[in-house]
Simulated assay, not measured.
Amino acid sequence: MTPAGHRLLHLCSLTLAAGAVALLALAACGSSPRPDHSAHSAMPGMDHTGTATPGSPPSGMPGMAGMTTDEGLAAERDGYRLDSPATELPAGRPVSYPFTITGPDGRPITDFAEVQTEKLHFYAIRADLTGYQHLHPTMAADGTWTADPAALDPGTWRLYASFTPNTGPRKGKEFVLGRTLTVPGTATAVPLPAAGDSATVDGWTATVQGDLTAGKAGPLTVSISRDGRPVTDLQPYLDSYAHLSAFHQGDQALAHLHPITPVAGDHGGPSLTFYALLGRPGNWRVFLQFRTAGQVHTAELTLHVA
């Protein structure tokens, strides 16, 4: 072999040795197994590889627990089911709505994680997106919940239960399940108000800023004012400074959100930032709840999503 050939053989040997060392280092660090992306599959702001999508907030940011891709359009998901013997409720007077959440084994669940200070959030809204109610039912020892909505107008209503199992195969996963029921009587549909960026309730004005695209998490800023002056004394409500529920016109898909703004006593406002994930284009009826001086206010407005 020529001297040049010897030098080439020596260079190749060094290259192969370096590659072997690198492979051994990778194996020792545990890098060779295929990565498991299942933990990210249900996280808003993540794609299927677990990579943050554009415009998404950092994981673990306050308020992100309120983001879920469930929309309350099904009574059952992943073996968890919202059941109730009631298919009708009377109109015009307060009523009780009994229900259970059953698990994959078919038995009522009694162990729920506390989310936003409550173990279950219950929503009710009529098909024309009027009559919004947000309740926190009580649960009996056998797993039967009882919600006590205020008087309901005649029409078709959708009822939602938002919860997180504290045991079982989906422990820690948030679910939003829903069922419809009828309130007998003559129903008069109310047209959806036009889309706008502000609403006034009890003297407080909520102004919303943000361009949302269906299916993409994006920032939404809400500013609270009174008589034209910024409000800076919002009190915590459900462990944050506001709670936002949005219902899609047409199918009543639900999105519920909390601001990522950290809570620091009774000093919230004037601006609160949400990361909104609304899954469908079109109009959404928004109900923004916030607390001042011990009173919860609910501002209502319509948002259009491209």
Score class of each variant (00 low, 15 high):
84 S>D: 06
47 D>R: 11
232 T>S: 14
110 T>A: 08
290 F>D: 09
73 L>S: 08
133 Q>I: 11
210 G>S: 03
167 T>C: 01
116 Q>T: 06
183 V>D: 03
185 G>I: 02
101 I>A: 10
221 T>C: 00
224 I>S: 01
145 W>R: 08
163 F>C: 10
122 F>H: 14
139 M>R: 11
152 L>V: 01
246 A>N: 02
107 R>M: 06
241 Y>D: 04
155 G>C: 03
84 S>L: 12
9 L>C: 04
106 G>D: 11
243 H>S: 11
186 T>S: 12
111 D>Q: 14
219 P>D: 00
9 L>S: 09
100 T>W: 01
60 G>W: 13
84 S>R: 07
131 G>P: 00
129 L>Q: 14
5 G>T: 12
18 A>Q: 13
53 T>N: 04
267 H>W: 05
179 R>V: 10
257 L>C: 03
167 T>F: 04
99 F>P: 02
51 T>S: 14
203 G>I: 08
128 D>Q: 12
84 S>P: 10
298 T>A: 01
106 G>A: 11
211 D>K: 04
61 M>V: 06
181 L>N: 08
92 G>V: 06
27 A>Y: 11
137 P>T: 12
83 D>R: 13
187 A>P: 03
281 P>I: 01
238 L>D: 10
133 Q>F: 07
52 A>F: 07
290 F>V: 11
224 I>T: 02
290 F>L: 02
261 T>E: 05
68 T>I: 13
68 T>D: 07
136 H>E: 08
86 A>Y: 05
287 F>V: 01
292 T>F: 03
195 A>L: 00
31 S>G: 00
6 H>L: 12
297 H>A: 04
202 D>N: 13
115 V>L: 15
102 T>V: 15
109 I>R: 15
193 P>N: 09
29 C>Q: 15
111 D>G: 00
96 S>M: 05
38 S>D: 04
244 L>T: 08
10 H>L: 15
8 L>Q: 11
48 H>I: 14
17 A>M: 08
257 L>G: 02
178 G>D: 04
133 Q>S: 07
57 P>S: 07
104 P>T: 06
138 T>M: 13
304 H>Q: 14
109 I>M: 15
209 Q>I: 05
92 G>N: 06
71 E>I: 00
28 A>E: 10
158 R>H: 04
122 F>Y: 14
67 M>K: 01
149 P>D: 13
161 A>D: 04
58 P>I: 08
84 S>A: 15
303 L>A: 03
217 A>E: 08
234 L>R: 06
223 S>Q: 12
85 P>K: 02
241 Y>P: 11
102 T>G: 09
200 T>P: 08
217 A>S: 09
181 L>Y: 02
15 T>A: 15
36 D>I: 08
36 D>H: 03
229 R>V: 14
293 A>W: 04
191 P>L: 06
303 L>W: 13
199 A>H: 07
277 L>T: 04
255 A>M: 05
39 A>F: 09
65 A>D: 15
66 G>K: 01
299 A>R: 10
169 P>Q: 09
164 T>N: 02
164 T>I: 13
271 S>A: 15
134 H>V: 01
267 H>G: 08
254 L>T: 11
37 H>E: 07
93 R>P: 00
303 L>Q: 13
199 A>C: 05
50 G>D: 11
296 V>F: 05
134 H>S: 01
33 P>D: 05
283 N>A: 14
145 W>Q: 03
